[in-house]
């Protein structure tokens, strides 16, 4: 009975009417629901792949997708709206897996090193108010980034999505390093102000 609902969710490219990803994850965890997982995969896998390509993974891009989606499947039961929205949760998994893959590629011998998951934990706050807060924060962030000037967004995107250092961003956009830092700083200040206004 739940399968039917998930199939109808597959054609969800409309942004206004996003599916309830949290409910789909719960079905994955509770019923090994393939249709629910497919819906999540169809939406997120192409985005994770784009992220991987932007980060320079090229031929390994599909490896990152598989690693992240495997982790989503395995940890579906651990997802909670009080942690983050699903896209934020998947972003953090993707970021951590990317770091993990790079670290493993660079490792020359078996050794005890600190785990990526210890360094990049998903911070949690334990109130139920959080879940409401998180969902509204996600919407809020989307509106907030729409308000940022294009040049600041480009710089942010390059840092977040292409893993570029500030120097590389400057070189690529052919602008001075100080300008890149200035744009990033301005965008962060604006976001911080917007966040703080919202919390009060």
């Amino acid at each position: 009975m739940t399968t039917k609902k998930a199939v109808s969710m597959n054609d969800s490219t409309a942004t206004n009417d996003a599916p309830d990803w949290g409910a789909l994850l719960a079905r994955v965890a509770e019923n090994d629901d393939k249709a629910a997982f497919r819906a999540i995969y169809q939406h997120f896998a192409p985005r994770i792949k784009a992220y991987a390509i932007n980060q320079g993974f090229s031929q390994h891009a599909e490896v990152l997708v598989q690693e992240v989606m495997t982790s989503v499947w395995r940890n579906a039961g651990k997802y909670s709206e009080s942690l983050a929205s699903v896209s934020t949760w998947i972003f953090t998994i993707t970021r951590n897996q990317r770091i993990d893959i790079l670290r493993k590629l660079n490792r020359t011998r078996a050794e005890v090193v600190i785990e990526t998951e210890e360094l990049w934990q998903i911070p949690t706050e334990d109130t139920t108010i959080c879940s409401i807060q998180n969902l509204s924060t996600e919407k809020f962030v989307k509106t907030a980034i729409d308000k940022l000037p294009e040049e600041q967004m480009i710089a942010l995107r390059k840092v977040y999505y292409e893993g570029k250092t500030h120097e590389e961003v400057a070189e690529e956009l052919n602008i001075p390093l100080g300008t890149v830092k200035g744009r990033l700083r301005l965008s962060l200040q604006k976001l911080r102000v917007m966040f703080e206004d919202k919390e009060i």
């Binding site: 942004t15 997120f44 896998a45 192409p46 985005r47 994770i48 792949k49 784009a50 992220y51 390509i53 932007n54 891009a61 599909e62 997708v65 983050a84 929205s85 896209s87 934020t88 949760w89 998947i90 972003f91 953090t92 993707t94 970021r95 998903i122 911070p123 706050e125 998180n134 924060t137 996600e138 962030v141 989307k142 980034i145 942010l156 995107r157 977040y160 999505y161 976001l191 966040f195």
Partner: peptide, 20 residues
């Protein structure tokens, strides 16, 4: 950091998807 993670999530939503 939580807010900045949200920013990452929002950017993931707006990224141009690649074909798998």
């Amino acid at each position: 950091v939580k807010n900045l993670n949200h920013l990452g999530g929002a950017l993931l939503e707006t990224i141009k998807p690649a074909s798998t």
